[in-house]
């Protein structure tokens, strides 16, 4: 098998006394879509933030194409350009228009020509159904629109890997779909992605591999069919059962009778 794009080796992270990530090993190959699921507080988001060196790690190593990601490294900004990140709360820059938001980093950081980036930005906006919104400010957009702009902004840097941190968690249900569709499209194009989500149907549809994280440990790392049909661990079974409404219903009936 080819060398992985991203490799986490024995990554450990503490917040004070709390161990949030406990000896995590994970490798991601070109074109793979990894979905990380798990109960809240299990370290999913922290894992993504560590990959982007927004959080320091206390043990282990993270490599992107054999280059070590180190929060103190001088080349950190260079590495971060290759990692696109989309946040739950969109984090568009409120003082800039949609187009300026997208063009800012490619022109300032990568020193690309403004016209060229603008054209690319408009083409990408067209692909996510937002052509005509390039002059709007973030507060004039709906949550789903903002999140699509945030995805375009990340894409415009030509990252090698995309990280999605619960990008639909703050959205109204009818907007979740439009964002997930964009992500499904990206997956179909062969993008390498790591997605943290609570949308189980989506996870099943998009993932090449599912990582089940609990208590800062990788409990399962397997194909979605296996994970959703026959999870190996009891914790994973319990976790999945929370999404099963017929189970809830039978419990309600039991209680009421």
């Amino acid at each position: 098998m080819a060398e992985p794009i991203l490799a986490l080796k024995n990554v450990t992270k503490h917040f004070g006394e709390n161990t949030v990530l406990d000896d995590i090993d994970l490798s991601v190959h070109q074109g793979e879509v990894i979905v990380i699921v798990g109960p809240s507080g299990c370290g999913k988001s922290t894992l993504l933030r560590c990959v982007n060196a927004l959080e320091p790690i206390q043990g282990g190593e993270i490599y992107l194409n054999d280059e070590k990601i180190d929060i103190k490294s001088k080349k950190l900004a260079n590495l971060r350009q290759k990692i696109g990140m989309v946040f739950q709360s969109y984090e568009l820059f409120p003082h800039l228009t949609v187009l300026e938001n997208i063009v800012l980093a490619p022109t300032k950081v990568q020193k690309r020509k403004k016209e060229e980036v603008q054209q690319e930005a408009l083409a990408l906006l067209g692909r996510v159904g937002l052509l005509g919104k390039e002059g709007s400010y973030a507060r004039q957009l709906s949550g789903g629109q903002k999140q699509r702009v945030a995805i375009v902004r990340a894409l415009c840097m030509h990252p090698e890997i995309l990280l999605f941190d619960e990008v639909t968690a703050a959205l109204d249900p009818e907007m979740v779909r439009e964002v997930l569709d964009v992500m499904l499209n990206l997956a179909a194009q062969g993008r390498t992605m790591i997605i943290v989500t609570h949308e189980m149907q989506f996870a099943k549809a998009v993932a090449d591999r599912i990582i089940f994280l609990d208590g800062g440990k990788v409990l399962e790392d397997t194909k979605p069919e296996v994970f959703f049909e026959a999870p190996k661990t009891e914790r994973a079974r319990q976790f999945l059962s929370m999404f099963e409404f017929n189970v809830v219903k039978s419990q309600v009936e039991k209680v009421s009778s």
Binding site: N52, L54, A77, N78, R80, Q81, I83, G84, M85, F87, E91, F93, L104, A105, K108, V109, Q110, R153, A154, M157
Partner: peptide, 9 residues
């Protein structure tokens, strides 16, 4: 963080 994640110094 969002700006840093875009590779800005």
């Amino acid at each position: 963080e969002s700006a840093l994640s875009l590779g800005m110094s």
